[in-house]
């Protein structure tokens, strides 16, 4: 069961690929779809691997993605074990 989850704000994404490249558990891949500005956003390919570490959120230059921890399927805050 996934320990975390990522939220992607597709319309804010500019397709730089930082989150895909530096995700430590390789949860993400670039999508072949376009957003309305013509960029390829990331999409989740391995949701079960997400630890909710939020490294994607830290790398994102566009505030378009962030990870958060799950406990029993419930959100416990963006990137932080509180």
């Amino acid at each position: 069961m996934a320990r975390g989850f990522v939220t992607i704000l597709i319309e804010r994404c500019k397709g730089c690929g930082f989150c895909v490249e530096f995700c430590p558990t390789k949860v993400l891949a670039m999508s072949s779809a376009f957003n309305s500005k013509g960029y390829h956003p990331p999409h989740v390919v391995a949701p079960e691997k997400c630890s909710g570490c939020d490294l994607c959120g830290m790398f994102c230059p566009d505030f378009a993605i962030f990870g958060w921890k799950l406990r029993n399927g419930k959100a416990v805050g963006g990137g932080r074990e509180s």
Partner: peptide
Amino acid sequence: MIETEDLVEAPPQNPV
């Protein structure tokens, strides 16, 4: 597309 509804009631806001 990501389906979040079955996981949480309301997805958290980007903390920044």
